[in-house]
Nucleic acid binder design. Structure first.
Length: 306
RNA sequence: CGCGGGGUAGAGAAAUGGCAUCUCGCAAGGCUCAUAACCUUGAGAUUGGCGGUUCGAAUCCGCCCCCCGCAA
């Protein structure tokens, strides 16, 4: 199988490595242009570009993917494989490869279509999720399903761990299914569009913690939002990122957001149970454990998250 | 020159010109049936670096290095 890959984040890398290992030919990686990043606004290449260059694979970074049309036609790929590219790809491009274009999606479609399926599964407290391969059409995450593969979400999973698991699962599914798909052995079946649900792109503003929610809701929120875009609250007018919590089997008679000393460190009251703060990052500081943070707090009695 | 916070003992924080302090951790001892609890004692610091002002600088001035939050 000869294919072209379009993607930007690390998500597709295990898949690419696996497919190449199996002897498939990766003709070209299409990725987003280098973007200014960080405080110094240094131009930085996407993870896919860095990887592809390390493998001596051709890279294309069109501002609009339409501009890559001629290059794609010329290479005559069997397939265009897309994972976390970050741009809507028009039908003209999707139809160029002989076997069309396939998207790797981080949920069991039609559930959690859109930009943040992995986070959505965590935020909603799902106990399982998975990978879906679909034939791409002009609507987002809408095309017929080639294959799905489910995995369990454990209580310990956060975005980083689940992302990693799913990217590795994607590699296995692609290696199993894509060769047969391009040979026409496997057919795709339409989604049940009536049961589709959608996720939006997460923003920093959405990361603010509402301490009047339940401990479970807050914990799921934090699991789904970290490390990006992150969850935060304020203490004494200053921004504090909350990087990790643990639900305590303890409910104090206090206002939501109230901080207090617990045998295992710093605890905070929610709507119901309290949460143990395991990792935080105050504005202007490095990340630290909840206990370290507690050591530096004066007047704890008067402190509460807002 | 986008805006801003910060660098003090292993960790987190005080101290705004005059003996570097507190909480945690660490070590030794005590109490205890026992302990993450409590009590004693102790070790651990060139206060990011260089220069300047001063009788005296963590503190004031200048330059440099490093870390981080926001924004993009």
């Amino acid at each position: 199988m000869k294919f072209i890959f379009a993607g930007t984040t690390e998500f597709g890398i295990p898949t690419l490595e696996k497919l190449m290992q199996d002897g498939h030919e990766l003709l070209l990686c299409i990725t987003q242009p280098d973007k200014p990043v960080g405080r110094k606004q240094q131009l930085s290449p996407s993870p896919i570009k860095v990887w592809a260059q390390g493998q001596n694979i051709r890279v294309s970074q069109p501002a609009k993917i339409m501009d890559a049309g001629p290059e794609i036609s010329e290479l005559k790929p069997d397939l265009l494989l897309v994972a976390a590219y970050g741009q809507i790809i028009p039908k003209e491009i999707l139809d160029l490869p002989e076997k069309g274009s396939v998207n790797i999606h981080g949920s069991i479609l039609p559930k959690y279509r859109g930009a943040s399926p992995i986070q959505a599964a965590l935020i909603n407290g799902e106990t399982s999720t998975g990978i879906t391969l679909i034939v791409m059409d002009e609507k987002m995450d809408h095309g017929p399903i080639i294959a799905t593969k489910e995995i369990t979400i454990t209580a310990d999973d956060d975005f980083s761990s689940l992302y990693k698991k799913l990217s590795q699962l994607a590699a296995l599914v692609c290696a199993d299914i894509l060769p047969e798909y391009t040979q026409g052995i496997i057919k795709a079946n339409p989604q049940n569009h009536d049961s589709a649900t959608y996720t939006k792109l997460l923003t920093k503003a959405d990361g603010q913690i509402d301490w009047t929610h339940t401990a479970l809701e807050i914990s799921n929120h934090i699991r789904g939002y970290n490390p990006e875009p992150g969850t935060w609250t304020t203490l004494d007018g200053k921004l504090i990122k909350i990087l990790g919590v643990k639900i305590l089997n303890e409910s104090k008679i206090e206002l939501p957001g109230k901080l207090y000393r617990h045998a295992d460190g710093l605890a905070v009251k929610s709507q119901d149970n309290s949460l143990l703060i395991t990792k935080v990052q105050p504005e202007g500081k490095n990340p630290m454990s909840g206990r370290d943070f507690l050591n530096g707090i004066k007047n704890l009695d008067r402190m509460h998250f807002v």
